[in-house]
Design a protein around this nucleic acid. Structure first.
Ligand SMILES: Nc1ncnc2c1ncn2[C@@H]1O[C@H](COP(=O)(O)OP(=O)(O)OP(=O)(O)O)[C@@H](O)[C@H]1O
Length: 761
DNA sequence: GACGTTGTCCTTTTT
DNA sequence: GGACAACGTC
């Protein structure tokens, strides 16, 4: 088989690809082609006739896995790429647990609890234990449980860890261990695993069943891990076990991009590699292929300030390019407005597609401002948010029915839908059901199946309603074996009353919800069609894979060419021609929560480094002097990170106290203060601080398009009226007349030969 | 038990 | 400014 593709790589990269036997560590800075090495290494393995099924490749996101697979498919043919074991730790392990989970007492149809399910269960347990949820905050308790799991601490181990128990005592939460134990028990009773269980259970599986371990060691003779700096202890142990027989393991990473310590990621995993595999090969890549020299220089100057790091050279042969720009805004809203305008201008000036642009920030709450600003200018965008499409209420409701059908012991799903749509089963009934189940060591579903035994406990009507509900779910269950996943899902959506509930009131919100449900159904169809194994085309398999998807993973075709708005964390591994890093203020980026120790601050700095190095051609930084926090304006100070960039890479020197058109000096009272209204006109007059090569605002260098090209439906721009849409055209040239609807100025009739219209799309 | 209104807390970051 | 729990009324 041809392996000419190797010449797509530089010499250092080639070496890392060709050394495919034995342990390899690739450690290199941003944009140096680590992911590319991993991709080509897999392609090379395939070209050496290594069966795809014996290669396990773990990536950080499902999207990265999909793209890598596609790339490999182009290099060595899609047929071979298809059967690779490739995906995130969670998704690959969830598939293994489908097959092997029975050894640990889980059915293959187990439910995956998402964070919301987990927190809601924790909260419930806290209530049941009669603990104060002010002290035992569900989110925090769940965090403790999660980090325990990721450090391989089971409930028993938690109880016997003097250190943990001591710490909980000191924080006046001595009963976290009890909550943890109950939580684990209840998940198990619900036939459910949370995200961390997917890792923990896989570990337990290979620890307690040596024959299973041996089988997977035999199968996965080649193991590759991307973004290794962000693996946690549990992941490390699993990889270590799986690779211990053949030791054909290749990990790639960059300690300077480790940004997930909050979920247990350990840079030490990279450092330990040489101890675990003393005969390892080390590969360093130094040439950055992504960014211009100024961007690489700026990023290097930032990361050099960290004490904890493996020193690395990184250089670019690309042109020097533009320097880093800085935008100062008076308010957060203005920040949104200015960035949106810059984007609009940059698209024209630099021939950008919208997909070449990303806006990054530290917290998800910042997205709203940019969404509004972009929407106003009609710039298409997509948000990679923390709550994905599958977390929306109407979606979770429908999925709740699917979940209950597949696994009726899933109590989170049951609680969610037993009374949606309303069927007269309220809180009182539900509590009683839970009580009965708990007192008899049974599960709610067991009680529902034997309602006749509880004639004395519930009244007639309630019994009838509960029986009807159980019969409904049982009816669906009977079809599990016989019906196709899509048909079953469709019939559930129709007959459960969910669709009807949305049709009942014809509001726009309901219409959009209805469309979302349709999308889920289509999603099932597509899922079934794209599975490689017949055993994976079931509804339970769909549910499992869907709970591990993020927004970025499940992008639709029509969303491709849009500006991406997301956190710096989500941007890891991605690249864009133009990048806007926003909200660079003290207490925000770096976050207030992580400004206490040097270690925390260094991680924030790494995050900033990640953000900068996503850019290929241009970086723009921004901050606002005033930002609304919980509806209250708060003054803010520019981030230290701006100052930390070597001035030679900055467009203009950063002035600590520049002249500002507006700077509130008064103290904010508790009462909500009216924000100073900044009118559109006012904002238009304000110039961004960054001036070099900043494209002129539309209207000054306005060039009209040929009127003959204008057609109905087009988006156009008028020098005075702004953006609008062509509603209608009438008459013959040269007296052709257009009806245009302008967003700001309403409907106008214009003669094309006079109106200077620019076609936007 | 359903539904609407008020009040509280919230913001790191994600599989 | 928004999500969600708690409260009150029908
Ligand atoms: N030898 C090469 N020739 C041309 N382009 C290359 C080469 N190596 C890498 N690139 C390009 O450089 C960019 C960065 O590569 P890649 O994403 O693999 O780097 P990385 O080290 O994984 O980056 P990061 O750690 O920042 O995510 C990509 O656009 C890639 O196509």
């Amino acid at each position: 088989m041809g392996k000419d593709f190797i010449k797509d790589l530089n010499e250092a990269q080639q070496k890392a690809v060709l050394a495919f036997k034995g342990p390899s560590l690739v450690i290199a800075g941003a944009g140096s082609g680590k992911t590319r090495v991993l991709t080509y290494r897999i392609a090379y393995l395939l070209s050496q006739d290594i069966p795809p099924g014996s290669i396990l490749a773990l990536t950080f996101t499902n999207k990265a896995a999909r793209e890598m697979k596609e790339r490999i498919g182009r290099l060595v043919g899609p047929e071979r790429a298809r059967y690779l074991w490739m995906g995130t730790f969670h998704s690959v392990f969830s598939k293994i647990l489908r097959r092997e989970g029975h050894l640990l007492g889980y059915p293959s149809t187990y439910t995956i609890f998402d964070t919301t399910d987990s927190k809601s269960l924790v909260k419930k347990i806290i209530k049941e234990l009669d603990l104060n949820d002010q002290i035992y905050k569900p989110g925090e308790v769940y965090g403790r449980i999660s980090s325990a799991k990721n450090n391989l601490i089971t409930p028993q181990a938690y109880f016997s860890s003097a250190q943990l128990m001591e710490m909980d005592k000191r924080t006046r939460r001595p009963r976290i261990a009890d909550i943890y134990k109950l939580y684990a028990l209840r998940c198990k009773k619900s036939n459910a695993m949370d995200f961390d269980d997917l890792l923990l259970n896989l570990y337990i599986l290979i620890r307690d069943f040596p024959e299973v371990l041996a089988r997977y060691q035999e199968q996965f003779r080649y193991i590759l891990v991307d973004e290794y700096q962000d693996t946690n202890y549990l992941q490390y142990r699993i990889i270590n076990q799986l690779s211990s027989r053949y030791k054909n393991i290749c990990v790639v990473g960059d300690d300077a991009q480790s940004i997930y310590s909050f979920r247990g990621a350990r840079i030490e995993n990279i450092l330990n590699f040489k101890h675990d595999y003393p005969d390892y090969h080390l590969f360093k890549l130094e040439r950055n292929y992504r960014s211009t020299r100024n961007i690489v220089g700026a990023a290097n100057s930032i990361i050099a300030r960290n004490r904890d790091q493996i020193s690395k050279k990184i250089w670019s042969k690309k042109e020097a390019g533009e320097k880093v720009k800085l935008i100062r805004a008076t308010t957060d809203n203005e920040e949104g407005y200015l960035i949106a305008n810059l984007i609009q201008d940059a698209v024209y000036a630099h021939q950008l597609h919208h997909q070449d642009i990303a806006i990054l920030y530290r917290t998800n709450a910042q997205s709203r401002i940019f969404e509004e600003a972009l929407r106003k200018l009609n710039i298409p965008y997509k948000v990679y948010g923390s709550l994905s499409f599958y977390q929306r209420k109407e979606i979770k409701d429908l999925l709740g029915y699917f979940r209950l059908t597949v696994n009726p012991y899933d109590e989170e799903a049951l609680r969610r839908i037993i009374n949606y749509p309303a069927r007269g089963i309220g809180q009182t009934t539900l509590s009683r059901l839970e009580e009965i189940a708990a007192s008899r060591d049974k599960r709610i579903w067991d009680i529902l199946l034997s309602m006749d035994d509880y004639a004395g406990v519930f009244n007639q009507g309630t019994i009838r309603r509960l029986k009807a509900f159980a019969a409904l779910i049982n009816g669906y269950r009977e079809n599990l074996q016989t019906m196709e996943a899509f048909d079953l899902a469709y019939s559930i959506a129709e007959s459960s009353g969910i669709m009807k509930d949305l049709h009942y009131e014809n509001s726009p919100e309901n219409l959009s919800k209805w469309e979302n449900l349709q999308e889920i159904l289509n999603g099932i169809k597509e899922f079934v069609e794209t599975q490689d194994q017949a055993e994976d085309t079931t509804l339970d398999s769909f549910l499992q894979s869907v709970s591990l998807l993020t927004d970025a993973d499940s992008e639709k075709e029509e969303d491709r060419d849009k500006v991406t708005i997301m956190t710096a964390h989500s941007a890891k591994g991605l690249e864009y021609r133009f990048v806007y890093v926003t909200g660079l203020e003290e207490e925000l980026f770096p976050s207030r929560m992580s400004s206490n120790t040097r270690e925390e601050l260094e991680e924030e700095r790494r995050l900033f480094y990640v953000a900068l190095t996503r850019a290929m051609e241009q970086v723009t930084l921004s901050y606002a002097n005033t930002r609304y926090r919980w509806g209250v304006p708060v003054n803010s100070v520019p981030s230290r990170f701006i100052r930390e960039i070597e001035p030679e890479y900055m467009d203009q020197p950063f002035e600590e106290n520049p002249d500002e058109p507006y700077r509130p000096t008064w103290k904010f009272s508790q009462k909500k203060v009216e924000s100073v209204p900044v009118t559109t006109e006012k904002m238009k007059r304000m110039k961004p601080v960054s001036r070099t090569s900043a494209p002129s605002p539309s209207g000054i260098h306005f060039t009209a398009d040929d009127p003959a090209e204008i057609q109905a439906g087009m988006q156009v721009e008028h020098p005075r009226f702004g953006q609008g849409k062509i509603i209608n055209l009438e008459g013959e040239p040269p007296n052709r007349k257009a009806t245009v609807f302008f967003k700001e100025h309403g409907q106008k009739q214009l003669l094309l030969k006079f109106a200077k219209l620019k076609i936007i799309r």
